[in-house]
Amino acid sequence: MGQDFIRRVTTEDFRAVARALTIVENDSWTYGEWWSVISGRLGGAYIVGLTGWPGVGKSTLMGRILEHVSPDDGYVGVVAVDPSSHRTGGAVLGDRLRMMTTVLQPNIFIRSLASRGSQSGVSKATLRAIDIMDAAGFHWIFVETVGVGQTQVDILELADAVVLVTAPGLGDEVQAIKAGILEIPDLIVVNMADRPEAHRTVAGLRWALGHSPENRGRIIETVAVKDVGTAELWSVLRTLQASNASAVIKERRRARQRRRALMFAEEMWERSISTALSTAEVHELLYGALAETNDPYDVGVQIVRRALEYLSEEEVLGRNSK
């Protein structure tokens, strides 16, 4: 599909947004083709990353936040990522089931994504999805990630604000913050805060963050199933969004450009390599390695050379490089 299509993708037409998301989820080529249109339309959305270990109630919390969204808040998009089965490649995507109460609200759009294998794959497809929604004119984009760890770092590069969701008794994230492993998120939500051991979690986090008033405000206690504290969370997020021009945001958006550049490089390279691998010449070289007539090291070098030739000769990632 050409650039005409992506020009028509706006929040006025959720069906077009949905179709565009399917395309970029599966195909970075078309995304490259669209990039010149997309890039001119980015920056309007405020992107919030929602991260935390499985079982802390991220989806329920997300569903509650959506219940507090009013028509005045503009278009709100959610990208919910769930893991794929390593064995079969399939997935059960159940996040949005916890966001059903607002399904008919005309300014809310939710899309489920399967992680489909590699961690870096998650962030690349997610980044493309975010870009489509941003370009379409969404005012808010929430990204609910699979878990923490590596993706936690990724989400810092994808989002304007990061909300870490935790629950009493888990402690892992608290420990990680204490140990300085995790960068400090913009907000920390202690969900299930009606559990008896919640005060200990909150105290531990306060201690880890230090006692400045600014850091004190970063911890929000919620009980998502009972809709406690979620209105406050939404209002804090809106305040954060209002300070959109801050240096931190600019820094993060620059980081996203770096991320895109790396993504393009990776995708172009993968494509060139796979083009090279499909040629008869390379097949012959590989057969030589198999038959022990060719040295594997030399074959490797020659494949890379072929790939480089393709990269300079051919159309790459939706645009002619010449």
Partner: peptide, 28 residues
């Protein structure tokens, strides 16, 4: 169906036709 390599968006129960169709659009 997950075990057959499909991606299943599971919506649970007590749904109206309007809800199902709305989600079908968004999830393409």
């Amino acid at each position: 169906l997950r075990d057959h390599g499909m991606e299943v968006i599971y919506l649970g129960m007590r749904l109206t036709p309007e809800q199902i169709a709305t989600v079908a659009v968004q999830e393409d």
